[in-house]
Amino acid sequence: MAAVKPRLVLATHNKGKLREFRELLRGQIPGLDVDTQVIDAAAAGAPDVAETGVTFAENSLLKARTVAAATGLVAVADDSGLAVDVLGGAPGIFSARWSGRHGDDDANTALLLAQLADIDDAHRAARFVCAAAVAVPGTVSGTAFGPAAGPASGTAAGADGVAAPAAFGLRAAEHVEHGELPGVLLRAPRGDGGFGYDPILVPDGLCVSCAELAPDDKNAISHRGQAFRKLLPYIIAALERN
């Protein structure tokens, strides 16, 4: 029996993000086996992409473009993080490396909690932010794509300063969407689920942290879930195109 060929690559080496992405896509795209045809950058042989952008959207587009070009597959990427009000939106795009070492969740969380130790509960508002992008390899620079109805073009998101594809000399059609999950920061981590800063953010209207939510419940409200659901029509259009 012939091996199942991947159709979609998530531009990350973070296994937690891959698990969430597969569950968000499960049953949403007819004929797509998310367990075998949706892979991460490591399985596709693509390297980590340096996040050199200055916004979440720039970084997500950069990762999607680079991995699409490297693999020849439709690529989806996200850049997400925690924005704390009293820190002026920090850690923001530096969330994954706030403590100085990329991906050390425990160290990042410990440093942030120490920095906020003297902040009253009334001023501990924060939000998770996500920009999710899809890119199609090998297409004409600046070419738009997308569902039959909805936004006319899947190029850049001008709201946070991302330039149109032609400005980068790209060879991939692309689109980016956003999501946010507001909440309040705890003083100590709670819960064993999720990853990143999930154990210290309690979403507005709830009394449990993101790490205490069941995966399906978290995906239903999360910043990443919001962004990927908005992106879904463009992912479908991209797969049809490629």
Rank of each mutant, 00 (worst) to 15 (best):
L213F: 02
R19W: 04
E58Q: 14
D198I: 06
L239W: 09
V49I: 15
P203C: 02
F168V: 01
V67L: 13
S222M: 01
E20C: 04
A43I: 05
I29Q: 07
V134I: 05
P151V: 07
G179H: 05
L170R: 12
D216H: 08
F56D: 05
G16N: 10
G205C: 10
L61T: 13
V134Q: 02
P147R: 08
R7Q: 04
V86C: 11
G169Y: 02
F145N: 03
T143E: 15
G142Y: 06
L170D: 15
I235C: 05
G89V: 01
A132C: 13
S99A: 15
I236Y: 07
E23K: 07
A117K: 14
D120K: 13
L116E: 10
L32F: 02
A148C: 12
A90T: 05
D85C: 01
A148W: 09
V38F: 05
A41V: 06
D85R: 05
D217C: 01
A238W: 02
T109M: 07
L116F: 08
G16F: 06
G92Q: 04
V86I: 04
L8R: 01
G88N: 02
L231E: 02
A131V: 03
A50T: 15
G88D: 09
D204E: 14
I200T: 11
A42P: 01
G53S: 14
G196Q: 04
C130T: 13
A166W: 15
L201D: 00
G27D: 12
A237Y: 03
V34D: 06
A41F: 05
T12L: 15
G81Q: 02
A211E: 11
F21T: 03
I200H: 03
G53M: 08
G45Y: 12
C130M: 03
S209L: 03
T155L: 14
T12D: 10
V38L: 00
K230I: 09
L112S: 02
A70C: 05
R22I: 02
V208G: 04
D40P: 01
A57T: 14
A90K: 10
P215F: 06
C207T: 15
N242L: 15
E58V: 10
E212A: 08
